[in-house]
Design a protein around this nucleic acid. Structure first.
Lengths: 200, 200
DNA sequence: ATTTTGTTTAACAATTTTGTCAAACAATAA
DNA sequence: TTATTGTTTGACAAAATTGTTAAACAAAAT
């Protein structure tokens, strides 16, 4: 088990995470990552054999962090559906401020190389919690609290309304002439709008 | 004025469009594009000075095609709001089957190189029609047909619900164990769901 | 003090990718 | 037929990027 996890290694990871997920610089070279981390380029190879390994480690980290945040807030068993959704929305919004480009990165990376069957998705597939969540949605439809539709569609609606505006941020900011601050405020305002739309 | 637009030039454009927007292979090299078009690689340079020029021309084409489709279906002046939205949804869904990755491509490309202020957005900004559309939305809120909120939020809701499931397709297909066919059907089913959600 | 271990650096090699150029080729016009 | 024009090709050069290696260095252990 790794005891230290050298500070340099962490610096590189952080720099990469920032470039990829926060700034959307998917083409960033090892040199750029090293510069951002303030270290010699070859250290990227020293700590992570190759550029691709760094990619995947950084992605794994971000996903793990996200999963933890979700578990600790939405994971409890006996909370009302509405509260559960509210917490989910909170975590997602919070997360998307930190790493707005993580979904785009994921999708981009999946298609990077058709042959190289990358394990970007490795653990996601065996998602027991997903099934549970879908079941909760179905139950709630039975109660009549939310519109009847295939539970998957409800989930997709929720994620769409939350994530798309974050992904498309740079585009919309220009088109709508919004400043960073204005856009962020607009995203925050969406919480109530989304809840109203889906739960009312 | 260009009379011919050589068949080879078109083949290259088509191949690039397919790779970028249909398959999401943003890293595709000139060699790969040439292979897909079935032509010699140097022809890419012959017809389009550089790779980047090809990128931007192809993007311009796709945007123009989309704009035309929208104008011809949503552009009329005196049609009921509901019909307008229905048509908009139809065009967007249709378009997203043809080029699912166009939005991701746009955003990726915007962040490709921070310095190089690319004109990917050139014409989008001066969007008179956007303002008009927002005005129509506002009027409709006055009538009480749709929920009151900042018109921009309504637009974002609409685009989110339409576009996100397309963008995230490769991810969701794996997570939900959906086949291509199943996913496409699910996307089609969304039309009614979206209209219900936003207009009811 | 000196081994040993782990970290950092610079130089290098290998690879990949792009772009240029001149020659070959084909189609059409003179 | 012979020019002329436009198209295609292969060879080459240049640039960018990645990954390896050996040597320098620093810290800790013996």
């Amino acid at each position: 088990m790794a005891i230290k996890d050298s500070v340099t290694e962490q610096q590189i990871k952080e720099a990469a995470k920032k470039l990829f997920f926060k700034e959307g610089r998917f083409k960033a070279t090892t040199q750029e990552i090293a510069d951002a981390a303030g270290v010699n380029r070859t250290l990227v190879n020293y700590y992570f054999r190759s550029r691709d390994v760094l990619f995947d480690e950084v992605l794994k980290d971000a996903k793990a962090a996200m999963t933890n945040r979700l578990k600790s807030s939405v994971g409890e068993e006996n909370i009302p559906f509405r509260v559960r959704i509210e917490r989910f929305v909170d975590v997602m919004i919070e997360n998307s401020f930190a790493y707005p480009y993580i979904d785009v990165y994921l999708v981009s990376r999946m298609n990077d190389d058709v042959n190289h069957q990358n394990d970007v998705l490795a653990d996601i597939k065996k998602n027991e919690e997903l099934k549970h969540f879908l079941k909760l949605i179905e139950d709630e439809m039975g109660k009549g609290t939310i519109e009847k539709m295939p539970p998957v569609q409800f989930l997709i609606n929720l994620l769409s309304l939350l994530t798309y505006p974050v992904i498309i941020q740079p585009l919309f900011k220009k088109v709508l002439h919004f400043s960073d601050r204005q856009y962020q405020q607009m995203l925050k305002d969406r919480k109530e709008i989304i809840l109203n739309l889906l739960l009312k």
